[in-house]
C-alpha cells in the first residue's frame, strides 16, 4: 500500500553518498556549537586530500599579481589589496557594501609545508592553494625487530 518514496525515486545505493554527506555536514555543524565564528578576512575552507592540505578562499576582484602568498614552515600567509574602482572625479557613491583596502591573514597548518611544491590558482574570484606536506614531516613507519 505504502511504497517507500526513497525507493521509488531512485535506488537506495544512489542516495547513499548524499546521506553520508548530510551526516558529515551535521556533525560539522554541531561540533562547532558554542564556538564563535571567526571574523578574519578572507574566510577560508581547508580540505584534506591524500595527506596534503588544500586551502580555498573567496577573494572576488583581486588582481592576482598583487596577491601575495607566502609559506614558511607551517604558516601560510595571504595578503593583498582589494581592487578599488578608478574614479575620474565626477562619480558619487550611492551604496557601498563591498570591502575595501588591504588584508593579511596567517594560518597555521598542522604540518610543515613543502614550499617548493605549493600550487596556487585563482579562478572566478576563488583562490585555491594546494599545500603538500614536507617529506621529513610525514609519519614514519617503525619496524619491530
Amino acid at each position: 500500500m505504502f511504497s517507500p518514496s526513497l525507493w521509488r525515486i531512485r535506488r537506495f545505493s544512489d542516495a547513499m553518498p548524499e546521506m553520508l554527506q548530510l551526516q558529515r555536514e551535521m556533525n560539522r555543524l554541531f561540533s562547532n556549537v558554542g564556538q564563535k565564528a571567526p571574523q578574519d578576512y578572507p574566510a577560508v575552507n581547508i580540505w584534506e586530500k591524500n595527506g596534503s592540505a588544500v586551502v580555498t578562499a573567496e577573494l572576488p576582484g583581486i588582481d592576482p599579481e598583487k596577491l601575495d602568498i607566502s609559506v614558511s614552515g607551517d604558516i601560510l600567509t595571504l595578503s593583498g589589496t582589494a581592487q578599488s574602482i578608478n574614479f575620474t572625479g565626477s562619480e558619487t557613491y550611492l551604496r557601498q557594501e563591498r570591502g575595501i583596502g588591504s588584508f593579511k591573514r596567517s594560518l597555521q597548518l598542522p604540518f610543515s609545508v613543502n614550499a617548493q611544491e605549493v600550487e596556487a590558482r585563482y579562478e572566478r574570484g576563488i583562490l585555491m592553494i594546494a599545500l603538500p606536506r614536507m617529506k621529513e614531516d610525514l609519519p614514519k613507519k617503525i619496524k619491530i625487530k
Partner: peptide, 18 residues
C-alpha cells in the same frame, strides 16, 4: 554591491565569487 553614478550612467558592482 557597490553602486555609483556619474552624469551618464549608474554602475553596479557585485561580488559573486565562483
Amino acid at each position: 554591491v557597490d553602486i555609483y553614478e556619474n552624469k551618464d550612467a549608474l554602475f553596479l558592482i557585485a561580488d559573486m565569487p565562483g
